[in-house]
Simulated assay, not measured.
Amino acid sequence: MSLFRTPQIVLFTRDIERAVTFYSALGFEEAFRTPEVGTPIHVDLVLDDYRIGLAAESSTRHDHGLDPVAVGQRAAVILWTDDVRAGHARLIELGAKPIKAPAPWLDHLLIAWVEDLDGHLVQVVQAVRPS
């Protein structure tokens, strides 16, 4: 039996409402919010069995005494799809910054990269047949 369970990643953001809107538009559904009324300091979102948390940078500093970094390429959210080109275009339509257009990787994947509105990397991945 494992000591740990239910892994999750938390992304720090300077504008939590904007981040929630972005990831909700990708199909993530809100599973937790605190506080429930007013501007949240933390929101968890779920897509399939994948859970991400969005934490306000200011709250993380104040409440936990930490020094979070809210911009830059520190982690990547990976989204699998059956259509990388459409997924990449949708992310850009929602305001993501294009980093790398869809391109083959290894012999069986097609991948594309963007940065979300806070600069976190988002990779869109599609399994393809080897050529």
Rank of each mutant, 00 (worst) to 15 (best):
D48S: 12
E93G: 14
P7H: 07
A96Y: 14
V124R: 01
Q123R: 09
H108I: 00
P7E: 03
P7G: 04
A96M: 10
L11Q: 07
R14H: 10
Q8Y: 08
I9P: 00
F4C: 08
D82T: 11
F4L: 14
D44M: 07
G27S: 06
R85C: 04
G65L: 13
L66A: 14
R129C: 02
R74Q: 10
I99A: 08
V128E: 14
L26Q: 03
F22C: 06
A101K: 10
A75V: 11
R33S: 08
E30Q: 14
P68E: 05
R90Y: 04
T6R: 09
P35Q: 05
V125E: 12
E115K: 01
S24N: 13
Y23T: 05
W113R: 06
D116T: 00
A76T: 15
K100Y: 01
E115L: 04
D107Y: 05
E93N: 12
V10Q: 09
I41R: 14
H62K: 13
W113E: 10
D83F: 01
D48T: 07
D82Q: 13
Y23P: 08
F32E: 11
R90M: 05
W113M: 05
L94Y: 02
V84T: 12
G72C: 08
D15T: 00
D118Y: 03
A31K: 12
F12E: 07
A89T: 09
L91Q: 12
Q123A: 11
L121V: 06
E30L: 08
R90A: 05
A75W: 07
V114F: 00
D63G: 06
V71H: 13
R129W: 02
A76P: 01
T60D: 04
I52V: 14
V84A: 13
H64F: 15
A55W: 05
G95P: 01
E93I: 13
R74L: 15
